[in-house]
Simulated scan of single mutants.
Amino acid sequence: MDTANLSAFLAVADSGSFSRAAEQLHLTQPAISKRIAMLEQQLDARLFDRIGRKVTLTEAGRALKPRAQEVLGLLNDTRRALSNLSDNVQGRLSMATSHHIGLHRLPPVLREFTCAYPDVALDIQFLDSEVAYEQVLQGEIELAVITLAPEVEPPVVAELIWHDPLDLVIAPEHPLAHAAVLDLAKLAAYPAVFPGANTFTHRIVSTLFEQHQIKPYISMSTNYMETIKMMVSIGLAWSVLPRSMLDSQVRALSIPGIRMQRDLGCIWHSGRTRSNAALAFIRLLQEAAAAESEKG
Rank of each mutant, 00 (worst) to 15 (best):
T3M: 03
T3V: 06
T3E: 10
T3H: 11
A4E: 09
L6W: 00
F9M: 02
A11I: 04
V12I: 05
A13I: 01
F18R: 02
S19N: 11
A22K: 08
E23H: 10
L25E: 03
L25W: 02
H26D: 14
K34E: 13
E40N: 00
F48E: 11
F48A: 08
R50Y: 03
I51Q: 10
G52L: 04
G52V: 05
K54Q: 10
T56V: 00
E59T: 06
E59G: 03
A60N: 14
A60E: 11
P66M: 09
P66N: 12
R67P: 03
A68F: 03
Q69V: 13
L72Q: 02
L72K: 02
G73T: 03
N76L: 09
N76K: 11
L82P: 02
S83Y: 08
L85K: 15
S86M: 14
M95A: 06
M95D: 05
S98T: 15
S98I: 13
I101G: 11
L103T: 03
L103R: 07
R105Y: 15
P108N: 07
R111I: 08
T114D: 08
T114K: 12
D119Y: 14
V120D: 06
D123N: 11
D123W: 06
I124S: 02
Y133G: 01
Q135W: 07
V136P: 01
L137M: 13
Q138S: 13
G139N: 04
P150W: 06
E151I: 11
E153P: 00
V156I: 14
V156W: 01
A158F: 13
L168T: 04
V169C: 09
A171G: 05
E173D: 15
A180F: 08
L182T: 08
A192S: 11
V193Q: 04
V193W: 10
V193F: 07
F194K: 04
P195T: 04
H202W: 08
T207D: 09
T207H: 09
F209A: 05
E210N: 13
Q211A: 09
H212P: 01
Y217K: 07
K229L: 06
M230T: 11
S233C: 09
I234L: 08
A237I: 13
A237F: 14
A237W: 07
S239T: 02
D247Q: 02
L253W: 15
I258V: 13
R259V: 06
R259S: 02
L264Y: 08
S270R: 14
G271W: 00
G271N: 04
G271T: 03
R272I: 14
S275I: 04
S275Y: 08
N276R: 12
A277I: 10
A278H: 10
A280R: 09
Q286E: 13
A289G: 08
A290K: 13
A290E: 12
